[in-house]
Structure formats: C-alpha cells, structure tokens
C-alpha cells in the first residue's frame, strides 16, 4: 500500500509516496529527494556515514524506518551551514583540513555539531568520547578532534 508522507528537511517540506513503511530514511533522502549528503556506508547502523539530525539528535538514517519520522525536522550536512553562513564547525573543519576522502564526513560533522550544541566547551576526552562510535577508514580521527576544539573556541 502506497502511503503519502511529508518530510521536513533543511527547512523545506517534501511530499513523497512510500511503498514500504520499513524503508530506511536514508533511501527516502537519497532516492526520493535526491539529496547527496547522507551516504550509504553499511546500512547496519555501524559506521555513521548516513548520519542526519532528527530534531537535533544525530541519527543513523540507514537504520530508521521512514514511517517513524512523523513531523520531526531533519537536517543534513548541507543544512548545517553554507559558504555564506558557515557553521563554526565547517570553518574549523576546513582550517584543520580534516578529511581525506570524506566519505565518512556526515557522521563526524553531524556528531561534532550536536556535541557543540550540548556542550559548547568540550574537553578533549569529551570530544573523543562523542566520536567513539564512528568509523573513518582514512584515519582522520585526531584531526576531527582538533577541529571540534578549534570550533569550540570560536563558538
């Protein structure tokens, strides 16, 4: 049974029709809406590549059924800021030249931004803790920590 739904993403409303209510949010964002930021890394909730904010909470969109979203507001990396009005973490991320390939970037930046919101002045161990369940195969871990600490100084 096809269901009609409305998703609020980065402040815009999008109507979609969904055949399978169990379809993960990731596929709605990428396939129905054509958004590229959340990426498929594992589909198992193990890596973070698909992370978006759902009402401000970093969420792995590969493991959340689209039917569970309801009226929640979704923010992708693209919605965090832009070149005109960058999020402080985006500025810091560029300053620190964090990524190699960048395939993992949604997980790290969305977790980092959520941490700064919860705790504008985190300690290094707190940053490491916030990143403890993320994967980056290129080894950018320490650079990501430096970027959050740099952004914290600017917030």
């Amino acid at each position: 049974m096809t269901q009609k739904m409305t998703l609020t993403v980065n402040g815009h409303q999008h109507k979609i029709s969904v055949d399978d209510p169990d379809m993960p949010l990731l596929y709605a964002l990428r396939d129905d809406l054509g958004l590229n930021n959340p990426r498929f890394g594992c589909g198992l909730g193990q890596c973070g590549a698909c992370t978006v904010h759902v009402d401000g909470v970093p969420t792995r969109s590969c493991s959340l059924p689209v039917s569970a979203i309801g009226k929640a507001k979704i923010t992708t990396l693209h919605g965090l800021g832009n070149r005109q009005k960058p999020h402080p973490l985006q500025t810091a991320w560029i300053e620190e030249q964090v990524n190699q390939c960048g395939y993992c970037i949604n997980g790290w930046m969305m977790e980092g931004a959520a941490l700064l919101k919860r705790n504008p002045n985190p300690t290094e161990p707190q940053v490491r803790e916030a990143f403890s369940d993320l994967i980056c195969r290129c080894g950018t871990h320490n650079a990501a920590v430096r970027a959050v600490l740099r952004a914290a100084k600017q917030v």
């Binding site: 498929f40 990396l77 693209h78 560029i94 030249q97 990524n99 960048g102």
Partner: peptide, 18 residues
C-alpha cells in the same frame, strides 16, 4: 588548502553514487 575539502564540508562534493 584543498578545494575538494571545502566542497566535502559543505555537502557539495558529488561522488559516483550521486
């Protein structure tokens, strides 16, 4: 600094899957 990095940070860098 690398131009690709800013594109990745702002969610502008397309990969083949996009």
């Amino acid at each position: 600094k690398r131009p690709d990095l800013a594109k990745k940070v702002f969610g502008e860098q397309d990969f083949p899957g996009d």
